[in-house]
């Protein structure tokens, strides 16, 4: 048990670390995909089969592809290597402090755990029951998520459409991003 968990944790954390520190942007996107695959395997190990497959279908198959596509579409003549922001040290310090706080809370917290005999086997996750719950008790969040996805789809399409050609005689908006 612990060997597979250690390997998967290594894949997840290694992929995440590489995604966050890699200078080459496309490599960062691909490392993110590797990290998400590792996470999906962790989900499978936890017994959430449906969630693990959905994770790969949605995250690796769609979100990661979208990210690398966007990295490609926003390339410039500038070098493909990213530099760190103006004050990287404070960001890293904040993240480290947060991790220390969370680790302390996790190790000293008393979580109500399941009794040992039921913790040994994963709770059953049948897709039929999932669908049943979604359409009976959680039908309102389901419809809200449907509305959200529709709005996101239409909004993303409208935002990413090429702007109409500006009138050459019109100079009302300022040029450049800095005010």
């Amino acid at each position: 048990m612990t060997l597979t968990f250690a390997l998967l944790a290594g894949l997840v954390l290694g992929g995440a670390f590489a995604a966050v520190t890699c200078r080459n942007r496309v490599h960062a996107g691909l490392f993110l995909a590797a990290c998400l695959v590792g996470l999906a395997l962790v989900f499978l190990r936890l017994g959430a089969e449906f969630l693990g497959f959905i994770q790969i279908l949605v995250y690796v198959g769609a979100v990661a592809v979208l990210i690398v596509f966007a990295i490609l579409l926003t390339r410039d003549a500038e070098s493909p290597r990213d530099r760190l922001a103006n004050a990287p040290a404070s960001g890293i310090l904040i993240a480290l402090a947060l991790f220390a706080l969370l680790a302390w809370a996790i190790s000293t917290g008393k979580f109500p755990a399941a009794p040992a005999e039921t913790a040994a086997v994963a709770p059953a996750l049948s897709v039929k029951a999932l669908g049943d719950r979604l359409f009976r008790e959680y039908v309102l969040p389901l419809q809200a998520v449907g509305l959200l996805l529709t709005a996101a789809l239409i909004g993303a399409a409208v935002i990413a459409l090429p702007a109409p050609k500006p009138d050459p005689l019109d100079d009302s908006d300022a040029s450049g991003p800095a005010s």
Binding site: L30, F50, F53, I56, L57, V60, G61, A64, L125
Partner: peptide, 26 residues
Amino acid sequence: DLPETGLLFFLMVGTAVELGVFMAGW
């Protein structure tokens, strides 16, 4: 034989090919 998610496994590996196509092209 995946009694709960057989078809989903198939569709999942179908979407995994896309990243390989992008990697090859880029």
